[in-house]
Design a protein around this nucleic acid. Structure first.
Lengths: 213, 213
DNA sequence: TAGATTGTTAATCGATTAACAATC
DNA sequence: TAGATTGTTAATCGATTAACAATC
């Protein structure tokens, strides 16, 4: 099962995970009108604007079998995707940077449903330290490393200013963080066992303004 | 020049634009310590963790020439990237959904620097309509189409609930919007002359939680 | 000059798509 | 049965990487 996924290249694996997550959200959010028990690879492909062969291959890779003439059992697919993507388990995370973006992310309703619980914010601004943000306490950045160590935090969300992103990243990695969700426009160099997902919002803007010319 | 870019496949073009935007932000934000006038493709490649041949090819594609033994003139590269990406020009945009995420996006400091000006928010909540958000007025969604038409808005940011995303998308496209920055987890089907950039935040989360297993 | 870096062609690699037999 | 859909192999396509001559 999972062994097959691990045989993929790093970029292939990343692309696969992105597709699997899209399948999941498409089946969960975007087909609520569908009372159908069965969903075919062609239906899903049309929903997402991709090739149907791809979908059958991806589902086969995670051990799902379809039925000729019927398609795939929708609930079975959704359940298996939850397992594979780790959305079933509970994960503790911290947010570094108690600004608007950090707050928006912490309050995103989908997250709690997917097992993400924000444990604390960290900021350097004395006006923010000690206050509550989105139901969590805001601590000073100086307390960050101890917090990560004592609570065994593995996931950190970076919404701090770009110029301090690298310093923070190296601190939290040394404290034990294994996955970083990077919302700054900084490129982070990390050890091989740490995963960084970049959400470079400015890059998205640049892509769009290109097309506006 | 630009004609070369247009000869690329759709996915190739998208990948190129992403790389160009990364070059830009890397040169602008992440090498401020560098007083160097010259920057080599190898330096930039190391910064971004990509292949240096790729960088030379990309820069050649947009008409930039390097000098053997020296590299590329940094300012020239930055300036040309601004032109190509359309970051020099002023663009008016609207944000649909006056929640936390919409506010965070509207206040993102990088945007005004890159020519994006938010003209209005739209929401369906009576408690929000008529108020100010991030320095802009919040209008009712019913006024959206007229606003787009009269102000000739081409770019819309979607931060509305997922279940209304498709209806909104089809309304704004009919009103004349050409590029949609989609922060909902909905897949939007649009005509060929409309560009959608998806920032599926939940997809990002799913990718990260996979690695936490 | 010697050496480093560009610019570009060729080769490899992987991802996507097409085709089609198997099957319910 | 007939027909639709899966599952999988083969073919195509494009992107990435390697190699190296040109050049400052």
């Amino acid at each position: 099962m999972d062994r097959h996924i691990d045989s993929l290249s790093l970029s292939g694996k990343k692309a696969l995970l992105t597709r699997l997550a899209q399948f999941y959200f498409s089946l969960r959010d975007c087909l609520p009108c569908f009372e159908c028990v069965w969903v075919s690879s062609v239906q899903l492909a049309q929903q997402l604007g991709v090739d149907d062969t791809q979908i059958r291959k991806d589902l086969a890779l995670i051990g799902l079998k379809g039925r000729p003439r019927m398609g795939f059992k929708r609930d079975e697919v959704v359940q298996r995707l939850r397992e594979i993507l780790g959305l079933d388990k509970q994960h503790q995370a911290i947010v570094i940077g108690a600004g608007r973006l950090g707050g928006a992310i912490a309050e995103y309703p989908g997250f709690r449903d997917h097992g993400l619980s924000i444990e604390a914010f960290f900021d350097i601004d004395p006006a923010k330290v000690g206050t509550q943000a989105s139901g969590c306490r805001v601590y000073h950045v100086d307390e960050m490393v101890d917090f990560i160590r004592s609570r065994n935090i593995r996931l950190a969300v970076l919404t701090c200013p770009v110029n301090v992103a690298r310093g923070i990243a190296s601190d939290i990695v040394r404290a034990g963080v294994k996955t970083i969700w990077n919302f700054t426009s900084s490129y982070l160099a990390v050890p091989a066992d740490v995963v960084v997902r970049n959400e470079h919002i400015s890059v998205g803007l640049a892509e769009l303004t290109y097309y506006l010319k």
